[in-house]
Amino acid sequence: MMLVRRVVTTTSLAKFFPCFSSSLSKSGRFAYHASSPAPSLNPISDDSCGSENEEAEIDWDELGFGLVPTDYMYVMKGTQDGEFINGELNHFGDIKLSPSSGVLNYGQGLFEGLKAYRRKGMGGGIMLFRPEENALRMGMGAQRMCMPSPSVDQFLHAVKLTVLANKRWVPPQGKGSLYVRPLLIGSGPVLGLAPAPEYMFLVYASPVGNYFKEGVAPINLLLADKIHRAIPGGTGGIKAISNYAPVLKAQMHAKSKGFTDVLYLDSVNKKYLEEASSCNIFIVKGNVISTPATNGTILPGITRRSIIELANDLGYQVEERLVSVDELFDADEVFCTGTAVVVAPVGCISYCDQRYTFKTGVETAAQRLYNTLTAIQMGHVQDTKGWTHEIQ
């Protein structure tokens, strides 16, 4: 099979960022294509940025999933009519917002999350996994939230530029990844309930390790029966910022009792699985892998979609449908998927004072799928699906 690679390199960065000049002889040129004018970049002085080959001063072995401020972030402004122009790299730092901005007053905001992985060795290239899917999902969410959004090309350009500018913060392979967080917010002032007149698109990044404190060990979930993550007709199917604060109370209660996270039921029948606080859920029974259908209350995860395709390739029968609590408790295996968690095996779930345990370990579907997915993400195997973008 032929290896599918999309390579983005950095020649044009030299005139804006002298810190990239050391690699020009081997890097080639940074490609950018968009229907609107290419973002302009403000120069950042040479003495404020280190060599791209300089390794960040950080203990990679102690890396958790928390914010580690990096060097640069990308900022681009947009108008209500959908025009986004004049994007630029800035030093990572605070942003200025009106007290009456749409995001602060009415929660008009979206976010995405994706990861950059380093190929083996600090001199290796950097891999992005399906970033165009994040761009498309942000566009879908923007429509629901009455917001304009960057084009796919603008989104990809911003993500790649941010990763390259923070290249020294990408962990060595096997030590973690660079988590990339694109944000789209209503930055313009508005008092009455209405869409903001101006928008801001930002991309920042932070090196991260495992999302859960358990690392790659099985996680322990609490099944919530009184708090629900989403309702039909709401915004549960998009990555609205307002989706996440409502689950904090349930999550903090669960963690205080020793649980890793919370799994939620549907808000109508209260008997069908939806998802966990920040990841999708799968159950395994024999050769059948089932996951709740994305019917508007469940986020259509990019890792979720990838796992479904890989599971089919590996010979499993995959079903997207309503999954009841009774089926959950009868499952052989349970696992969660998401950009942050990748594929996380579930060791046990507690519900109504009952504890249910599930199979974990090397001979499970979850482990097999984790190995297959991460091999593609890190460039260990040929990407026959065209899912990865390599940047240098």
Rank of each mutant, 00 (worst) to 15 (best):
T372R: 04
F329G: 04
T357K: 12
S101T: 05
C348E: 12
Y316R: 04
T294V: 11
S350C: 11
S100N: 15
S51T: 05
V323G: 07
F92H: 06
L183S: 09
S25C: 10
R5D: 13
S23H: 02
M138H: 03
Q143H: 13
S45G: 12
G123Q: 11
C352A: 04
L63P: 00
V318N: 06
H380D: 15
M147L: 02
D330Q: 06
R229Y: 13
I44H: 05
L184C: 01
W169Y: 13
N42D: 15
Q367A: 02
F329R: 03
M252G: 07
D81S: 10
D47Y: 14
F17K: 01
G125D: 14
Q108H: 07
N90C: 12
L248S: 10
K160Y: 02
F155M: 04
N220M: 04
S51Y: 06
L63D: 11
P197R: 06
G123C: 10
G87F: 00
T11D: 10
S40C: 09
A56G: 06
K385V: 08
E327M: 03
G315I: 04
G64W: 06
I219A: 03
F212D: 05
I185H: 08
G215I: 01
N105I: 00
E198G: 02
L128E: 02
T384R: 03
N86S: 05
L223H: 01
